[in-house]
């Protein structure tokens, strides 16, 4: 179980960062507002503190591996292709910032360890609900103490979730809403929880039949995609050709896979 040690690092880092998010949730205030970004990209001081905690814990044990983290993402990353790197940690200390600011308990710490573009270890920790999802190849996938797996059901018996693209809205925005409506009206419904990693964790633990996202940040979804895959979901990932930090993906239970792939194909091009 060669990934167990990386999983232990990710568990330690995610829970320590989650503790910061939880204990500081009453201190939330808007610290910075970056120009030309949507409201959902408001960054808080707490997010940065939590991220620094994660980086310190990873560096204590794994000094040399690159860490792709939201608050430390810069232009140098645009020169690297994620799938060309031998090893990489991908970190988001707070996925679901708007939920966090508004005291809605759907946000999470997301940490993944990736080798040659393929996630091998993933941890998603929701500190508001004390829900810890984690998994590694060759180890298994769990929520808390329990192994988890998807609940396989067709679309008419399934609830879905999606994460819309953030940042500057492009001409596919209306298409995203069309796809949302189509799937919503031909299934048990579609949620927008506000956290891509929480969506994927809910899929892995049997609450959802499928999840998709367009141009989401890799640090939001890498861990959750692995957890969903290990729990039995069929996962498809498309990396953006222009921006290495963006991915579009579908993850669904087998019985709903064709349905999701077909309905979301227009978004994944």
């Amino acid at each position: 179980m060669i990934y167990q040690s990386y999983l232990n690092i990710a568990l330690r880092a995610a829970t320590a960062a989650g503790e910061i998010l939880r204990t500081r949730s009453d201190d939330v205030m808007r610290q910075t507002a970056k120009p030309n970004l949507s409201a959902r990209d408001i960054v808080t001081e707490i997010d940065k503190l939590a991220e620094e905690k994660i980086i310190r814990i990873i560096r204590d044990t794994d000094a040399d591996v690159p860490i792709l983290a939201e608050e430390h993402f810069d232009k140098s990353w645009k020169l690297k292709k994620i799938d060309s790197l031998d090893r990489l940690w991908v970190v988001d200390a707070l996925d679901g910032t708007v939920n966090y600011i508004n005291h809605i308990p759907f946000y999470a710490v997301s940490i993944a360890y990736i080798e040659r573009g393929k996630p091998a270890v993933g941890v998603v920790f929701n500190p508001a609900l004390s829900e810890l999802y984690y998994g590694a190849r060759g180890v298994g996938v769990f929520r808390g103490s329990d192994p988890i797996k998807v609940r396989d059901a067709g679309p008419e018996h399934s609830l879905f979730a999606c994460a819309f693209s953030g940042g500057k809205y492009d001409d596919k925005r209306s298409v995203e809403f069309d796809v949302f409506r189509t799937i919503n009206d031909t299934s048990m419904g579609v949620l927008r929880t506000g956290s891509a990693s929480v969506n994927l964790a809910l899929l892995a633990s049997g609450s959802l039949g499928g999840v998709w996202g367009r141009n989401n940040k890799i640090w939001d979804v890498a861990a959750g995609l692995l957890i969903a895959e290990l729990a039995g979901a069929e996962v498809k990932i498309n990396y953006s050709l222009e921006k290495p930090e963006l991915v579009s993906y579908t993850a669904s239970v087998p019985a709903s896979s064709n349905f999701i792939l077909e309905k979301t194909s227009v978004l994944m091009k």
């Binding site: 167990q4 999983l7 232990n8 568990l11 330690r12 180890v139 298994g140 769990f142 103490s145």
Partner: peptide, 8 residues
């Protein structure tokens, strides 16, 4: 996995 969780 209990032994890894208590350690981590």
């Amino acid at each position: 996995h209990i032994r890894h969780l208590i350690g981590a």
